[in-house]
Design a protein around this nucleic acid. Sequence first.
DNA 1: CGATACAATGTATCTCGTACGGTATTGGAG
DNA 2: CTCCAATACCGTACGAGATACATTGTATCG
Lengths: 246, 246
Amino acid sequence: MEAERELPTVVARMWGREPASRRGPRPGLTLGRIADAAIVIADAEGLAGVRMSSVAARLGVSTMALYGYVESKDDLLAAMVDTAAPDPPEPGDLSWRAYLAAWTRAHRDFLASHPWLLEVAPLTPPVGPRALRWLDRSLTMLTGAGLAAAEAVNITTTLSAYAVSAATLAVAMSGTVDEAGPEGPAGYAAMLSQLVDADGYPGLAAALESGAFGAAPEWVEDADFVFGLTLLLDGVEALITRRKEG
Amino acid sequence: MEAERELPTVVARMWGREPASRRGPRPGLTLGRIADAAIVIADAEGLAGVRMSSVAARLGVSTMALYGYVESKDDLLAAMVDTAAPDPPEPGDLSWRAYLAAWTRAHRDFLASHPWLLEVAPLTPPVGPRALRWLDRSLTMLTGAGLAAAEAVNITTTLSAYAVSAATLAVAMSGTVDEAGPEGPAGYAAMLSQLVDADGYPGLAAALESGAFGAAPEWVEDADFVFGLTLLLDGVEALITRRKEG
DNA sequence: CGATACAATGTATCTCGTACGGTATTGGAG
DNA sequence: CTCCAATACCGTACGAGATACATTGTATCG
């Protein structure tokens, strides 16, 4: 049961569980510094710019030096994810609803400010201290409001998914994507109208004509976001009420 | 405006817009057959198994032969995404709510049955005929129920994100992930309990103790899914009602 | 002060994607 | 019927990038 099985090394280091022994040269790096360097590169050049060699160069060490801290490039990416995340918002004395709104918004914002996260983060379950802190805060609020743990987990996952989707949209709209559409949203809409005919795709064709796809970034960045978020939180609120009454 | 700019070649071929000229040897392949072969490999070995060479080998042609049909490996991946998707459920005479529930469920199901889609699809806006058909059906239903096009797009995106998140969870739980946790959900829960202390992570610690993480796959596969979906659709329903009254 | 463990290096290797040039095939034009 | 241009496919070669291995230097322990 409590098998205490070995933690993967990166995970251990992410949590500051450094190997105990002290002998030989002092390590010149830390996982944190490596991740930071990689993040700078990713922000500037995109994920493609992150190579073991480029990260090492930025730190003034040889490529292979990094392998003392991570076992593979995937490990490095995992470390980047947790390092790039800020700490979750402080609950203060906010209501669960106000807090979760802030939580989701902050979530979306940091994803959008590091677009490469969208290519890496969604796939791996959270293991770093920061990521788990995000999870924890939401769970605390929801169970505090009277929900069961399993429900809280589920809702948190959903909110997180919403943040990812909003961030993806925002990034796609600002055209920063690694060349998603030909060029930005306008290009995307134009492309669609070349392909879509009202026979096979009536709903889409109508939406295209109504301009629902050329939306301005600002729109996406707020009214649209709040719109969907409200939908979700309304659902949660209904559930909480039910639990309190039932 | 209607610049008729050149469509990317893969997109063109996905839509059956083959080059008109007929001269030289007859093409021995089609984009579809190539995508099918790649999908078989991806299903069997994961995305990592999909190499230009492995796909070509399976088709009995040389690696470079593929470049007559796609311009790059990314193109191939795009084609795979659209080919792997089934057609969306038929509306029949379902209510918008029943239809969207089916839509989301079917969406999740095909994602879960081709886990590699999760590593590729979420990032690229839909361009293939199948993907757009999915989009279209949802839009049609929602606008039919009285919502504005922009609202419908927003909601569809959210439902889609929910399907992705549910699929990710389902896949993670069945342990099929490219080695996400050490081994499956049990391993994940075990790992978390090694890291998380009740001081820094009270909500998480409680959830772990209550066993909310060791959930059986079946749970995830239905009750849990329906739970979140209901939340979402309740929100949509509230909105639709408001629109009808207002 | 010497032995030892360990960080960092440099080089070598292996896997892949893809550019290039060649060769064969086919439909159309003379 | 013959030749030509367009084109599918092949073989080879190159370059990028991740990582294994053997080596070198250095800081702590006995």
